[in-house]
């Protein structure tokens, strides 16, 4: 059984943290992952930086640009993560855009993920149809869960379809936006959270985009299985460095 399934079976109010690998410093990756686990985070999304992150707002863009300047590459990230399973046991997901994965070689990428102990992938610009037609068997061969997104604009029919082909969780984008562009959830979001909760999907949902404090975390997890924090965490890293990670997590959980 995949670590993601186990975690989602046992835990509610799952807290997942996104960070950009290679930021603030090239070799912070392992330190950040270990401190996140020690601070009680349930799941981690390791961001593979890309030059042109279309779905991301300024915070994650800037961290990606910096990470690339620092020298981060796909091969480098894998090298850093080589022994990660000796110290870390929570689910690890790689989130990245498709082009770097394509250039690395999809099969080789998946194989290395399995060797390292990566549990799943989130690739925002790999559409469902392409995944199904060309990559599903490869992902499955290496035991990787592919996570799909839904948004407030996704039709009910498509949500049902995405649920039917998902196996792990559904990444529920909180609002029509890129990452990091929200402050607080209004009635619209709450209604959307409720609407999805009522659909009784087979896969649990984890909310992402716009979660930045205890309040938004609680609002999201009232309806969904968990929530993902990205930009707010990166801002925190930017301001306080890697040594103050547990303070940030405490603030969210409070």
């Amino acid at each position: 059984m995949n670590r993601i399934h186990k975690k989602l079976q046992k835990t509610d109010k799952v807290l997942s943290i996104y960070f950009t690998a290679g930021y603030p410093n090239l070799n912070d990756t392992v330190t950040i992952i270990e401190s996140l686990e020690q601070s009680g985070v349930d799941m981690i999304e390791i961001g593979l930086p890309f030059s042109d992150p279309l779905a991301d707002g300024p915070t994650i863009q800037a961290s990606s640009t910096q990470a690339l300047k620092n020298g981060m590459t796909t091969a480098k990230l894998f090298e850093q993560l080589k022994d990660i399973r000796k110290t870390v046991s929570i689910p690890l997901i790689i989130m990245g855009y498709f082009n770097p994965i394509l250039q690395y070689g999809v099969e080789k990428f998946c194989k290395t993920c399995q060797e390292i102990g990566i549990d799943g992938l989130i690739i925002p610009d790999l559409p469902v149809s392409e995944y199904n037609a060309h990559y599903k068997t490869t992902f499955e061969k290496y035991g990787l869960i592919n996570v799909f997104l839904i948004t407030p604009q996704t039709s009910e029919e498509r949500i049902q379809f995405i649920d039917s082909i998902s196996n792990g969780f559904i990444y529920m984008v909180s609002s029509a936006s890129v990452t990091g562009s929200q402050s607080g959830f209004g009635d619209q979001q709450t209604e959307y959270f409720k609407r999805i909760a009522c659909m009784q999907l087979k896969n649990p949902q984890i909310v992402g985009f716009g979660i930045n404090n205890n309040e938004t975390f609680m609002q999201a997890t009232d309806y969904a299985k968990g929530a993902i924090i990205g930009s707010a965490f990166i801002k925190h890293l930017n301001e306080h460095g890697v040594s103050k990670i547990s303070e940030f997590i405490k603030g969210i959980r409070a």
């Binding site: 469902v128 799909f148 948004t151 984008v173 936006s177």
Partner: peptide, 11 residues
């Protein structure tokens, strides 16, 4: 070709 877009753009 194709449409390699994030789900947010799908609609």
């Amino acid at each position: 070709g194709g449409a390699y877009i994030p789900e947010m753009l799908y609609p």
